[in-house]
């Protein structure tokens, strides 16, 4: 497989992607590349624009949304192009799965038929060939006894199995990119681990790129190689999972890490991020995070820090970042107590 660094291996390029609803801007210029075969995580708190980014890129937002910017697939512009281009890409070269499988599975159609239909649309398979391929996909995503359950309806499957069915549908178009939007949030911990495992395995087997949207930093670190942290409609930090998890530089990223209770820890007090996420209608002046930021300086409340490149393909939007080797606050507390 190609090395991710080569410009030629770029599969999807988002440039200055902006979205507004009813005159309120919620996405403020997203620049993002997804390389062929890579697994990219998108994290951030509710409402920061994770879903809207990909819904906008795939033309899935409602008509009232004002979208601007560029979306390229293998160098070909998708934004503002003819509908037919986008429609053939969607579900074909790029597939998207959502948190709630019931929103995408048709409740009154047998699941075998739904997958066969997807195969007809995206790969022109019919008859026995389509059926055989559908069975192969069901097998691949781990639906036990697929042959016998081919003619069941979605409600006859459990939540975890419905998510597997969704993934099978997504794979029907042999996508180059699978966008998985919180695919495990509604599932039990043990089933969640199964689905994460499945996503990792499928990427290995098919070589498709994965964008994994989640607010769970733990889940992201298992599935992804690279991660983007979003806050209030912007990317504020980006880097390899290994680097960024070892030493988060943005005070928000660092705050997210510190706020998560640890399973292997004691019962120490949690370290919350004070305040709340800003209302997109009334974003603070300067850095959007400044009212909640422990490291904010006067300048942070005046100007907005741009997203700048650091070493190792890392990017950061902060005037006063966490020093590279700073320990997490939890550890400082632990050591003080020791």
């Amino acid at each position: 497989m190609d090395k991710n660094s080569a410009a030629g291996s770029r599969l999807v390029e988002l440039r200055d992607l902006r979205v507004a609803f009813d005159g309120v801007q919620v996405l403020h210029g997203i620049n993002l590349d997804v390389a062929k075969g890579e697994a990219l995580g998108l994290v951030g708190e509710s409402g920061c624009g994770k879903s809207v980014t990909w819904l906008a890129a795939l033309g899935l937002l409602p008509g009232k949304a004002m979208v601007s910017g560029s979306v390229k697939l293998d160098g070909q512009e998708l934004a503002g192009g003819p509908r037919s281009v986008l429609e053939s890409v969607r579900g074909g070269r790029i597939a998207m799965i959502f948190q709630d499988p019931s929103s995408s599975l048709n409740p009154v159609l047998r699941i075998g038929r739904q997958i066969v239909e997807a195969l007809a649309v995206h790969r022109s398979l019919r008859g026995e060939a389509a059926r055989a391929e559908a069975l192969r996909l069901l097998d691949m995503v781990g639906i036990p006894d697929a042959r016998r359950r081919f003619d069941l309806y979605p409600h006859e499957f459990s939540g975890g199995q419905c998510q597997r069915l969704m993934i099978a549908m997504a794979l029907a178009g042999e996508p180059d990119l699978l966008v998985a939007d919180e695919p495990t949030t509604a599932l039990d911990a043990t089933i969640q681990a199964q689905i994460l495992d499945l996503l990792i395995r499928l990427r290995k087997e098919t070589g498709m790129a994965t964008v994994f949207i989640s607010h769970d930093l733990g889940a992201v670190s298992q599935v992804c190689e690279r991660v983007c942290v979003m806050y209030a409609g912007r990317i504020v930090e980006e880097g390899s999972v290994a680097d960024l998890f070892a030493a988060p530089r943005h005070p928000y990223t660092r705050g997210l890490f510190d706020a998560i209770p640890r399973l292997d820890g004691g019962r120490e007090r949690l370290i919350p991020i004070p305040g709340t996420v800003p209302n997109p209608k009334h974003l603070p002046k300067g850095c959007s995070f400044s009212p909640r930021c422990p490291r904010a300086e006067d300048g942070c409340r005046e100007a907005r820090p741009p997203l700048l490149a650091l070493d190792n393909g890392r990017k950061l939007a902060c005037f006063n970042p966490v020093p590279p080797v700073a320990k997490t606050a939890v550890r400082i507390v632990e050591e003080a107590l020791a």
């Binding site: 911990a189 043990t190 681990a193 199964q194 733990g218 670190s221 298992q222 890490f257 399973l263």
Partner: peptide, 15 residues
């Protein structure tokens, strides 16, 4: 099954 940030899935018991 609880994902721990920075710890890989490999080696964990997946039910």
């Amino acid at each position: 099954s609880v994902p721990v940030p920075g710890q890989l899935l490999e080696g964990r018991v997946i039910l």
